[in-house]
Design a protein around this nucleic acid. Structure first.
Lengths: 235, 235
DNA sequence: GATAACCGTTACTTCAAGTAACAGATAACT
DNA sequence: AGTTATCTGTTACTTGAAGTAACGGTTATC
């Protein structure tokens, strides 16, 4: 069954004294759940997670409405790890192709560190009446849509494609990542090469349709003619 | 729990008389399950599916090892529907861009007819010891890998990227489809345009890296100079 | 001293997946 | 004609994981 976490309507110090503690405790339990999923896989049960966290199930249910809420927290944590590696790479200096390549490398490195958390994030689905951003995938897509949308607006073109392209990009990356983590038939460098090339050519071609040339300049320094040293390319 | 469906080692007519019947019956039950999922959503339980099929649960469990086996059958059915629309479009006459556009249109039309079956297919995961092709997604990716691999080999270039690109393509398509079906913030024509443009530019750029020009010819008739009428393009 | 909310625990409930066990029908075999 | 194999149907039942009730102790605030 599903129900809301007990709401707290603080009236005095006896109740407010616990607010910061509750947030810290919930974060601690999320990290413990992450460790348990890392160790036991995305199909670990609530009892297993509680045991690994050194608490009993009622303690977990004090902080999470249900198993889905706990999974949402783990997936959101995983999305945070991916984004804190991916976004700096995408916004770094360098040509667009370099940044795409760095972004793919950052992404694959992040999911390789926590493969089971990643596989839980990919598989997880929020109920239709829940906050869509409780889904790690949707959180990543929202961040990508913002970056793409801002970029398209800076170029002075229609930004309506940002959201479908962001969701498509997330699907492209997650499905490739899931395949790679479960099959391991090629190296990370090879996967990065194929993924980055795919994304780069999609970006370059879409930009060209809008009249923008991404092939030899960084958007923040388009007047520099000496930027010929490019990484990337299909392995 | 999970166990295999009872194996049948036919010895005489009393047992062999049922073989064709069992296959037909299973197919009938899959279609009934598809109808139930269509009506009640991907989260419909086994009891609900059985009731909608007009049978009791033990009857379902005679033909399916467990709920996951039933879901695999429904997902495989959905993948079959997608592929029987998608593959003819991809292999039709016309330029590559036209075929990509037709493929996206065929795909979105197929998933719009059975949105709940599609959402089940997307969410479904097979256990690690099961046949990977029992997963509808993997079945579609395998078909795409074959088409891409054959195409790359016909071009005389390295086909190693076929598999990661196929999985990436499937992820791109499924994630875009899932987002569109659950959000419906734009028309199917608009989604098709964005998706097709992304895929087309990725293909065109990758092919160009291999020294192949896709921009104005169909691969099966590259000597025809009059093929200038192209569909597609970003909305 | 009373109160609010934390901590711990085990026993317990709930519910959906999955099965046991029964009897009847039909066609193939002996 | 009798036996056998597998189908059909059913309801009651088991299983196991999610989730909760209920209890007492601790600590800081009122």
């Amino acid at each position: 069954m599903t129900r809301k976490v007990k709401g707290s309507d603080p009236r005095d110090g006896r109740s407010t004294r616990w607010s910061a503690h509750r947030e810290a405790r919930r974060d601690e339990l999320v990290l413990a759940a992450v460790a348990a999923i890392d160790a036991h896989g995305p199909q670990a049960g609530v009892g297993e997670i509680a045991a690994a966290a050194g608490v009993s199930k009622p303690v977990l249910y004090r902080y999470f409405a249900d198993k889905a809420d706990l999974h949402a927290a783990v997936g959101t944590w995983g999305a945070g790890v991916v984004m804190e590696r991916l976004l700096p790479a995408l916004l770094s200096e360098g040509t667009v192709r370099e940044r795409v390549d760095l972004g793919c490398e950052a992404y694959l490195a992040a999911i390789e560190e926590h493969p089971n958390v990643f596989l839980l994030l990919v598989a997880h689905r929020v109920e239709s009446d829940a906050d869509p951003l409780a889904d790690g995938k949707a959180a990543i897509a929202a961040a990508m849509a913002r970056v793409l949308g801002d970029t398209l607006r800076e170029l002075g073109v229609d930004a309506a494609g940002a959201e479908p392209w962001a969701h498509g990009l997330v699907g492209l990356g997650l499905s490739t990542g899931e395949w790679w983590l479960t099959r391991r038939t090629m190296s990370r460098a090879a996967v990065r090469g194929y993924l980055a090339a795919f994304v780069w050519h999609a970006f370059e071609g879409l930009a060209r349709e809008y009249g923008v040339d991404l092939t030899d300049s960084a958007p923040d320094d388009p007047d520099d003619p000496d930027r010929a040293d490019e990484r990337g390319g299909t392995p």
